[in-house]
Design a protein around this nucleic acid. Structure first.
Lengths: 184, 184
DNA sequence: TCTTGGTTTGACCAGATGGTCAAAACAACG
DNA sequence: CGTTGTTTTGACCATCTGGTCAAACCAAGA
């Protein structure tokens, strides 16, 4: 699974070969296919495992908590996901870039439903004047973008800031950004 | 070129076949190879054309202008690029995801140099108190992330906000975000 | 009409790729 | 040691893929 994640997250489904995965896993190709019935099965298994936790950070956004703190905490959970599971983030990015053929239905059902729900919560906070009146959908997009960028575009970030761990600075910056955005 | 852009931006270099490009272009494979010497040549040509304009929005950031206006204008130029050239954005994203093997040197030279230069300009503005004291590198990253997200993750955005054109809302939101971030 | 230059294509090739299969290797247990 | 169930592999196959080539096609000028 880890070997598959390495390769799929880099080259996407079509750009990945079973030989690559088998090599990375230290197995022969037939041996790899002894554990997984097909290339597609490996990919599906990885995507399913990813999706199990992918939406958790947003699910945990609590409508009863302090609005600004809740949203900042959400962004931090998402940033931690990028830091600790960058390959999973890139696997997801690859899938989206390719038109999300294998998770399109989940995007339109589970994801949309969850985002609608949390967007309503955020809109409630805005209407009550607890946070600035921002579009909740674009707010959520911006948190996705700001956090996943460090995993998905890691090569570029490393090229611009060589040697340093960007996540420390990213966390500080993220605090600044979100508290500023939301200040009523 | 357009057909190649369509396919490469979706599937990446390794995931793209000459037959796909030829089909999309309405040519036979040998005919395609009459105009381009190889698959690699098509990809290289596309990347080179992309890179010609990719850094222009940042280059145009003027150290003599009004700081907040300059940065907002930069973000808008970048958002316009996402809106008008989403396939190019995805081609770039694919290349970065795959480890940027073909443009690594450009990232480490041209891109890094340009970002360093503009980061210094932004830091100058911050030091003079014209904008809030933010990390200029993460500021630039955040503009990249916020704008490219709408092109690269278009499928996801469409799934969450079906039918609507996200770019209008994105522009408004971007104004809000950046002016808030930078307010001294 | 004939020629000439550019364009298009069917047939083909070598190597890669996803996947199969039977046989071999191995570990565990009586 | 012999048996049994699991794991591993070499050999193989059909299809795909990047790329070649000679032949055919076609437009335009002499």
């Amino acid at each position: 699974m880890s070997a598959g994640l390495d390769i799929f997250s880099q080259f996407g489904f079509r750009g990945t070969t079973l030989d690559q995965i088998a090599d990375a896993a230290g197995l022969s190709k037939p041996n790899l296919l002894y554990y997984f019935p097909s290339k597609e099965a490996i990919h599906t298994a990885l995507l399913e495992r990813l999706l199990e936790n992918w939406l958790d950070p947003l699910k945990a956004l609590n409508s009863g908590g302090d609005p600004v703190q809740e949203i900042i905490a959400y962004a931090h959970r998402k940033l931690a996901l990028s830091k600790d599971y960058p390959r999973e983030s890139r696997l997801f990015a690859n899938e989206i870039l390719q038109g999300a053929p294998r998770i399109e239905n989940i995007l339109h059902t589970d994801l949309k439903q969850l985002v609608d729900e949390k967007a309503a919560v955020i809109k409630g906070w805005a209407d009550k004047g607890k946070i600035a009146p921002v579009d909740p959908y674009h707010l959520i997009f911006s948190i996705w973008a700001l956090t996943q960028h460090y995993a998905d575009f890691d090569v570029q970030v490393q090229a611009v800031m060589p040697g340093s761990d960007p996540y420390a600075g990213a966390a500080t910056y993220l605090d600044h950004v979100i508290s500023r955005i939301l200040q009523p």
